[in-house]
Nucleic acid binder design. Sequence first.
DNA 1: GAGTGGTCTAGACCACGGC
DNA 2: CCGTGGTCTAGACCACTCT
Lengths: 248, 248
Amino acid sequence: MIKPVSRSTLVGTLRQQVLQEIVDQYQQKNLKLPPEQEMALQLNVARNTLRQVLCQLESEGFIIRKHGKGTFINPEALQINVNLQELIDFSDIVRKCGHVPSNTIHSLKEVEADAKLAALLEVPQGHRLLQVEYWIYADGAPAIVAVGWCARDIFSTALDISAWEKDSYFQVLQERAGRMVKSDRLKFSTLTVQQANMLLGHETCLSCDSVLVIDSVAFDQQGTPMIFGKALFDTTLIQFDLFRTIKE
Amino acid sequence: MIKPVSRSTLVGTLRQQVLQEIVDQYQQKNLKLPPEQEMALQLNVARNTLRQVLCQLESEGFIIRKHGKGTFINPEALQINVNLQELIDFSDIVRKCGHVPSNTIHSLKEVEADAKLAALLEVPQGHRLLQVEYWIYADGAPAIVAVGWCARDIFSTALDISAWEKDSYFQVLQERAGRMVKSDRLKFSTLTVQQANMLLGHETCLSCDSVLVIDSVAFDQQGTPMIFGKALFDTTLIQFDLFRTIKE
DNA sequence: GAGTGGTCTAGACCACGGC
DNA sequence: CCGTGGTCTAGACCACTCT
């Protein structure tokens, strides 16, 4: 079986190393990082390369850089649980919220693309789609209901339910279709549970009164839509965070 | 009155120029941008500087870069209305959703910080806070209810309601407290309208069944919390988008 | 003035896609 | 092979903070 390639770039490695340094220093209550020049020297990279990493970490909120003073660890950032900025699997979301995840495939079927799905996935109307509905639990309590659609023909082999019963949704796509999710676009809305049940056409397992709805279209490297997903979250169990920084 | 400074950096200017180029080319149905070398030459900047801008635009979804092929405009990106990644005012959110905004100050009062607010704003419990409740309308229909708290003593002058009755929340802070919001952290949840009314202790103007709740803490350049805000959105009127890209 | 982050440049070399 | 984006370096100079 072809394994996902882990091309390691200097920047990627650096990022890991600097993040580790941040966590270590944080535990020792030392919030000030060394000057950029010194860090670059120690890590044996150009200052520009290091700065690329530091810029990334700043925009994600891990550090705060103060002109003329230095670079400091942002204690706030280490308290975030689920960063909306990261593309991660449902199981990891549950895990990051401090719960033990488990999941079941509620249903798997082939359907025809209606007008809306066809437009989103850029396939002709009536195109054969795979529709998968997942239920994800946090410590046994229903936390997420997710429905995903993708074109049947992106898979070269037949797929049974067991293929989908793994932790990673993205992994299935990479292994079975050879395509990676590179980016996605989310849309946020809310529904009461009654409305959600009506939308899905059956009772969901969720026990809360209202749900957070995230519609997502995932794209591959070429910008071609691969999956459309609709996920319902019980926000008493799953809490998303988003750290934002002013541009410019 | 001290005006907000608009320090223009090369990268900032470049960004505007490249974005303009993208919009222009898009309208001419030409999705391929010139090679980086050529663009850099035309714009009279180093390729690295241009690349910095292109990286930004790629992570925001405006362009897709294909190794060995070129840089292409992402038509998807130009269809997004409210990008969650941007820190913008409520009025702008309404505007970007295609509606005409208007707003009223529902209430303005001084309160004492309870344990939760004190922790979030990093002030002692019982500290004097200003509490402002806004109602924002889209084409006259109630769309957002927002409550904000900040320490009374960050303002040097007394504040009456009229001071808050402007479009920009951020502007009030900059003009009256001399401090800029640099970043913020959001938390997402949902409530039914009944629950929301109970939380606020009075009837809201919202006419939907469930609301999207965004709790935000805004920080200044130093990483000091300035405002805590709780905003309730009618997602039938306000739709947030978020474009994400895989890191590394 | 010393220390530190912010900006920008010039150029080398690598890796991918297509002819 | 060429054209293109991806990575990395070295170093110049500016701007802010503190003493």
